[in-house]
């Protein structure tokens, strides 16, 4: 059997994201930059949700691990540690380490426990942030985070911030693609028939835990991207409600392919910006779209487009 490291969907996703590098040649609009930054951060976060959805697990833990990654960067910034490579590694590894015991614990139990525990976790993270002011600045957060430095150069301009976010999103997509491609058979078996997979000898919880650990690392990258965009780490950035946003991006975009979280995030972040200052109403739209996807368009945007395409060409 042919085994490629990446599938064509991964490559298309990388190409779509790489287009972000060329946007500054076309426009200097602050609004466009801002939306794109949100999209890149959202794509990373949604990919962490997507990894777990590959195994039928709905994760609310994304903001929790984003907070760990984001605050790691912000606290390092207070000590003037801003090297991009170092902080990328740190913002990935720390959340992943925290996820190891948690995953080993919860993923041996029924899938339902995973949903419940990650949801509670996202609520608890807020309390942790508020209760540890000496480390995280409590309700004030950490302001004035210095911009990243790449090979000793400060990446402080709007354009550089955008390029860095774009690079992080591509890195996250690459990691996600490699992971899901490498364990494709295992994840697909778990998604389709977990009981059969287990009875054939697959140690299901171990693959779930592996996915969870990598997903946590990727969430950490999203936290890094967010803090670098805002130059602030604040509890409200990692609010448990945002977990629902990332889940919506992924489900509405389509869980069948990595293009789902990428395109879903793009479409919904754009739509949310159309609400202008009434962004809080966007969740109602997400709710309606989730209902629609579950009831009539199981493949989300990507799945539906693919099905239509197939019908036209066949």
């Amino acid at each position: 059997m042919r085994r490629n490291l990446l599938g064509w969907a991964d490559l298309i996703a990388l190409l779509v994201l790489a287009a972000g590098f060329f946007v500054p040649m076309l426009t200097h609009s602050v609004l466009v930059y801002s939306i794109l930054n949100q999209v890149f951060t959202g794509v990373i976060a949604a990919e962490s949700v997507w990894i777990m959805l590959r195994m039928n697990l709905l994760s609310f833990a994304t903001p929790t691990f984003m907070a760990i990654g984001g605050y790691t960067v912000a606290i390092a910034g207070e000590y003037n540690v801003t090297d991009a490579f170092l902080m990328t590694a740190a913002s990935f590894i720390l959340p992943a380490l925290v996820a190891i015991p948690l995953g080993a614990l919860v993923l041996r139990l029924r899938g339902t426990y995973f949903v419940l525990v990650t949801f509670v976790l996202s609520q608890i993270m807020q309390l942790v942030l508020f209760e540890t002011p000496s480390l995280t600045g409590g309700s004030n957060g950490i302001a004035g985070v210095p911009p990243v430095t790449l090979f000793g150069t400060e990446m402080g301009t709007n354009r550089q911030v955008l390029e860095f976010a774009c690079g992080l999103a591509m890195l996250a997509t690459l990691i996600t693609g490699l992971l899901t491609r490498w364990f494709r058979q295992h994840f697909a078996a778990i998604e389709e028939n977990e009981i059969l997979a287990e009875s054939l000898g697959l140690v299901v919880w171990r693959y779930k835990a592996m996915g969870f650990v990598v997903a946590a690392g990727i969430s950490g990258l999203a936290g890094y991207s967010l803090v670098n965009m805002l130059l602030t780490a604040h509890p409200s950035s990692f609010d448990s409600g945002t977990a629902v946003d990332f889940i919506a991006y992924t489900i509405i975009g389509g869980r069948v392919s990595i293009l789902g979280p990428v395109l879903g995030t793009g479409a919904l972040v754009y739509a949310t910006n159309l609400f202008g200052t009434h962004g809080q109403y966007a969740q109602g739209l997400y709710g309606v779209l989730i209902l629609v996807v579950v009831l009539v368009a199981r493949g989300g945007i990507v799945g539906t487009v693919a099905a239509l395409w197939r019908r036209r060409t066949s």
Binding site: L58, V244, Q280, Q283, G284, G287, V288, I290, V294, L295
Partner: peptide
């Protein structure tokens, strides 16, 4: 799970 989540979002936004 997704249906009840969708309903919750619609209810709270409503």
């Amino acid at each position: 799970l997704m249906l009840t989540l969708g309903l919750y979002l619609v209810m709270s936004t409503g």
